[in-house]
Design a protein around this nucleic acid. Structure first.
Length: 564
RNA sequence: GUUUCAGUAGCUCAGUUGGAUAGAGCAUUCGCCUUCUAAGCGAACGGUCGGGGGUUCGAAUCCCUCCUGAAACACCA
C-alpha cells in the first residue's frame, strides 16, 4: 500500500486550485529524521503564489489538511510534517504481503512483452573471469527484475566461439596439445596452449601466419578444423555450465558468434540496398559523422566481416524472432562506443526500434590496479573465487553452528551468495579493484548478513510453530522498531520499479540491506515469542520480513537458506 | 589530443525529483550473550562533498571552468 497517495489526496483537497495531484505527490518527501515524521510537505513553491512566508503557509495547511491516515501533523519552519497512523498502515501492509507472498512487489507493465537479455558471453577455451561474472549476475538479476515487471525475458548467452584465435588454438593444439589433457581439464589446458602460442609467437613469426591459415580452413569448412572447433566448444561449454549451475543460472539460448556466420550477408545486402555503404581505405564503412561517431567498419579491406556486422545480424535476428519490446546487452562499459555505433547504423537504416536496444554497461574489475589479461595469463579464476568463498563459509558454520544439517549445501549458498551480492550491491558502473578478502566478507553490508537476518527470522517462526498467517486478520503493531520495518517492506515495490527504470540491481541490494538492518534492530529490542497482545502481529511481521528478504535475494540471484 | 564516465569520513560506498542538522559498512576504541542464532545490537571516533565561479528561497545534486583518475577512440571482440 502506498500511503503517500491518501496524504497527497488530502493535500489536494485544499490545494486543488493551485497544484495538481501529481505535483503534490512528487513534492511529498520522506524525511531523513524520525523527529520530522513519516512524510513531509515543503511549502516553498507556494510562497510566491500566495505572497506569504512558507512557514505561514505550512501553518495554514496544518489546520485544513486531514485524513483518517494522518494521525498528527506539525509544522517546522516551511515544512508540514505528517505523522501517520502506524496501526492502520501496518495492518494494511501486512495484509498485502501475507496475501501476495512472493508476488508482492510485482508489476504488470511488461504484460508478456519480450525482452532478450544478452549476458555472460564467455569465450570458448578461456576461463570465465570476474568480468564475465559481472555480466552474468547483472544480466540474470535484470532478467528476474524484468520478469517481476511482467515481461517475458529470454536469456541469451552470446558465446565467443568464432574468430582468428581459433586458428591459433588449433595450431597450438596440434603442436603441443594432448587429447587426454584437454578432456581432463578443458579450459585450463586450452588456456595454457593459448598462452604458450602467444609466448612462442614473440620469437617465431611463422606461427601467426599458420594460425591465420588454420582459421581460413575453419571458415572454409575443413573437416579437421571443424572437428577440433566443435570439440573445443563442447568441452568449454560443459565447464561453463558447471559454474552456471553453482550460480543457479540457466539460459534460453547459447547461440554465439558462429551462429550468425550465415546471417551477415543479408545485413550487407540491406546496407547496400539502402545506399549506406561507402569504401574508405579499402574497407566498407557506414559513415556516422552526423552522430558524432567514428565510421562503422562493416567489412575489412580484406573482405572479412567484423564485430559490428555480426551484432547487426544478431539484432535483426532477435527483432524478427522475439519482436522485442526492449533488447538488453549486459556488456562492459569499454564497449559503449560499439553499441552507440550499432544503434546509429540501425537508425540510419530507418529502424526506430534501435531506441529499444539498451547497452547496460558495467565498470571494470582490476587487480592490483591492473587490467586483467587472458593473453598474458593474468586472470582471476571465477571458480577459485567461488571455492574460496564457500570454504570460508564452511569454516564459519563450523565455528558458529556446528550442529546444523546440510552444512555443504548451506556453505555453498552462503559462499556463492557472498560473491554474487558483493558484485551487485554497488552501482554497476563503479569499477573496483579485486581483493578476495573483500569479496569474502560476511559481516556488515553483505549477502551473508542479509541471509543470516532471514535465518534468524525463520528460527523464530520454527520455535513458534507457525508458518502460515491469515491475510485477513486484524494485525496491530505500534512500536517504533516495527514501524521502521513496515516502512521498508512498504517501499519494496517502489524499489523494484526503480531498479527496473535504471537497469540497476543494486537498488534491490540496498533495499535488502536496509530491511535487514531494520529487522535486526527490531530483533534486538522487541521480544517476539514472549506473551504479549501483539504477539501474533509480531510473528506475522517476522514472516513478512522473511518473505520479502527472500524475494529481494531471489531478484539478485542469491539463495536464502532457512538456517545458517 | 578528442569523447565518455568518475572524484563524498583512513578504506569501500549510499545519497531517488535540487529540500531540514550530508548517511551506512569496514577499520580503530568501548559496551551488550542464564532471554527468539553475537554472521547480531548499541556507543565513540571520523567531512573544505576534488578546487574556484555561477543559477536558486535552498546545491553533494543543475551550469561554466580548472585539477586528478579510468575507459574508448578504423580494419580484435
Amino acid at each position: 500500500m502506498d500511503y503517500k497517495k491518501p496524504v497527497a489526496q488530502a493535500l489536494h483537497e485544499t490545494l486543488k486550485e493551485d497544484l495538481s495531484y501529481d505535483e503534490i505527490y512528487s513534492l511529498l518527501e520522506k524525511p531523513k529524521m524520525a523527529a520530522h515524521g513519516d512524510l513531509a510537505f515543503p511549502t516553498f513553491s507556494l510562497a510566491k503564489l500566495y505572497r506569504k512566508s512558507p512557514a505561514q503557509i505550512a501553518g495554514d495547511l496544518k489546520e485544513s489538511v486531514t485524513a483518517p491516515i494522518i494521525k498528527d501533523s506539525e509544522t517546522v519552519g516551511p515544512y508540514l510534517n505528517f505523522f501517520l497512523d502506524k496501526t492502520l498502515i501496518s495492518r494494511e501492509v501486512l495484509n498485502e504481503v501475507l496475501d501476495q507472498k512472493d508476488k508482492y512487489g510485482s508489476h504488470t507493465i511488461g504484460e508478456n512483452k519480450n525482452v532478450p537479455v544478452d549476458m555472460s558471453s564467455p569465450n570458448i577455451a578461456k576461463p570465465m573471469s570476474l568480468g564475465h561474472l559481472r555480466s552474468t549476475v547483472i544480466g540474470n538479476s535484470l532478467s528476474e527484475i524484468f520478469t517481476k515487471m511482467g515481461y517475458n525475458t529470454i536469456k541469451i548467452n552470446h558465446i565467443g566461439d568464432w574468430g582468428t584465435q581459433f586458428g591459433k588454438l588449433i595450431v597450438a593444439y596440434k603442436r603441443w596439445g594432448h587429447e587426454e589433457e584437454v578432456r581432463a581439464n578443458p579450459i585450463s589446458e586450452l588456456l595454457r596452449l593459448y598462452v604458450k602460442f602467444h609466448a612462442e609467437a614473440e620469437t617465431d613469426i611463422e606461427l601467426e601466419n599458420e594460425g591465420r591459415l588454420w582459421f581460413r580452413k575453419l571458415e572454409e569448412g575443413n573437416e579437421e578444423a571443424w572437428e577440433l572447433w566443435t570439440w573445443f566448444r563442447e568441452e568449454s561449454l560443459k565447464e561453463f555450465k558447471k559454474i552456471y549451475t553453482r550460480l543457479n543460472i540457466s539460459f534460453d539460448s547459447y547461440s554465439g558468434e558462429a551462429f550468425y556466420n550465415d546471417k551477415m550477408d543479408k545485413v550487407i545486402d540491406l546496407l547496400e540496398e539502402k545506399n549506406l555503404l561507402s569504401v574508405n581505405r579499402g574497407a566498407h564503412i557506414v559513415d556516422l559523422d552526423k552522430y558524432n561517431l567514428n565510421p562503422a567498419l562493416i567489412k575489412k579491406s580484406d573482405g572479412a566481416t567484423l564485430y559490428i556486422t555480426r551484432d547487426l545480424a544478431a539484432a535483426f535476428y532477435r527483432k524478427e524472432n522475439y519482436n522485442f519490446a526492449h533488447s538488453l546487452y549486459v556488456v562492459g562499459q569499454e564497449q559503449s562506443n560499439h553499441f552507440n555505433q550499432l544503434k546509429a547504423v540501425l537508425k540510419e537504416m530507418g529502424y526506430d526500434w534501435a531506441d529499444d536496444i539498451h547497452h547496460i554497461p558495467f565498470g571494470l574489475i582490476t587487480q592490483g590496479g591492473r587490467k586483467l589479461s587472458t593473453r598474458k595469463g593474468q586472470v582471476v579464476l571465477l571458480e577459485e573465487v567461488l571455492n574460496e568463498a564457500v570454504e570460508q563459509a564452511k569454516k564459519q558454520i563450523n565455528e558458529k553452528n556446528p550442529e546444523i544439517e546440510n552444512k555443504d549445501e548451506i556453505a555453498e549458498q552462503v559462499g556463492v551468495g557472498a560473491v554474487v551480492f558483493h558484485d551487485l550491491k554497488n552501482d554497476r558502473l563503479n569499477s573496483f579493484d579485486f581483493t578476495i578478502e573483500e569479496v569474502v566478507q560476511f559481516e556488515g553490508e553483505t549477502g551473508p548478513y542479509v541471509q543470516y537476518t532471514r535465518a534468524r527470522g525463520m528460527s523464530i517462526l520454527r520455535k513458534a510453530g507457525q508458518m502460515t498467517f491469515d491475510p485477513a486478520d486484524t494485525y496491530s503493531l505500534t512500536d517504533e522498531y516495527s514501524w521502521d520495518v513496515i516502512k521498508l517492506i512498504q517501499e519494496m515495490p517502489e524499489a523494484v520499479m526503480r531498479a527496473y527504470n535504471k537497469f540497476e540491481p543494486s537498488v534491490i541490494a540496498k533495499h535488502a540491506i536496509s530491511l535487514a538492518q531494520a529487522f535486526n534492530r527490531f530483533y534486538a529490542n522487541v521480544r517476539v515469542l514472549d506473551e504479549h497482545e501483539e504477539k501474533n502481529s509480531r510473528l506475522a511481521l517476522v514472516y513478512a520480513v522473511t518473505e520479502v528478504i527472500k524475494e529481494d535475494l531471489r531478484l539478485l540471484g542469491v539463495q536464502s537458506p532457512n538456517q545458517m
